[in-house]
């Protein structure tokens, strides 16, 4: 795909995000679009957000479970960029009016204390470089109409990243079994679903290592202080006005978030 088109689609997604409206799937308009093209479009989309004043504060890993990979038609995860405008804290209320067609996923977030530069990074390096882990919700959102996505569509759309909420209790991955830690998701006081760290690439640390290596081949390091969302351990949770979600990671702690208002789509 030529540079003009990359810029055009990146701008289109940025404008859609800004105006909270959706665009038709890119793959239907560009049947030959590759995953590499999609990452270049993502780069443009994110660059527009940065040019408008945000900073990159971390990365997210998506498509880490087999059911999601089967749905998207890929056999590896994908990634997107976390920007300063996406961050919420435990206990916050998210205005759904700022989103288009949001859904929540419960995850483990890694906060790094050292840079991590792939390739050659292993899960052990990830634990060594991790300052702490947090229970976290990622609120995924799609700028593509009706979530009609395949891998190219979601990658171009910054891996369908919306906003994210970090828990407050810090866990040391040297004390916590991040692979076997259970994940409990409750919606409005009722159990919604359960999961476990291993659901993410065998261990969330494997997913983080995968991304360090993938970005490493592009010359992009993880920086100390960055937040890495390691991938969903739960089923997607639909959210609406008045909903309250809590996710609890066994041996770590929980993350609570509320929602108000109405999303755009």
């Amino acid at each position: 795909m030529d540079d003009n088109k990359i810029t055009q689609y990146g701008d289109e997604l940025y404008e859609a995000w800004l105006a909270r409206r959706t665009v038709p799937p890119l793959r239907e308009r560009e049947p030959d679009i590759t995953i590499e093209d999609a990452y270049r479009i993502q780069e443009r989309f994110v660059a527009r957000r940065v040019a408008a004043g945000e900073t990159i504060v971390g990365k997210k890993i998506g498509a880490t479970s087999k059911p999601v990979q089967d749905f998207l038609g890929v056999y590896q995860p994908d990634f997107g960029m976390l920007t300063s405008g996406m961050v919420y804290q435990e206990g916050d209320t998210i205005d759904l009016g700022t989103l288009i067609q949001p859904k929540a996923e419960a995850e483990l977030a890694f906060v790094l204390k050292q840079d991590l530069q792939g390739p050659g990074v292993t899960a052990m390096d990830v634990i060594r470089a991790t300052d702490y882990v947090l229970a976290c919700f990622e609120i995924v959102d799609s700028r593509v109409t009706d979530w009609n996505i395949k891998i190219q569509d979601t990658v171009a759309d910054n891996a369908s990243c919306g906003v994210y909420v970090l828990g407050r209790t810090k866990g040391d991955p040297r004390k916590l079994d991040i692979t076997l830690a259970g994940m409990l998701v409750e919606k409005n006081g009722e159990l919604f679903s359960t999961g476990v760290g291993a659901a993410v690439q065998g261990s969330p640390a494997n997913a983080v290592a995968w991304l360090a290596n993938t970005l490493g081949t592009l010359g992009i390091p993880f920086k100390a202080g960055e937040v890495i969302l390691s991938g969903s351990q739960s089923a997607l949770v639909p959210v609406a006005d008045g909903d309250e979600l809590v996710c609890t990671v066994g041996g770590l702690g929980s993350c609570r978030v509320k929602f108000s208002g109405r999303s755009a789509a």
Partner: peptide
């Protein structure tokens, strides 16, 4: 919140808490 992984022949086949 105890996490559980069930493996059959080395492959994860069921998970939960």
């Amino acid at each position: 919140t105890l996490g559980v992984v069930l493996e059959k022949n080395g492959e994860m086949v069921a998970m939960g808490a």
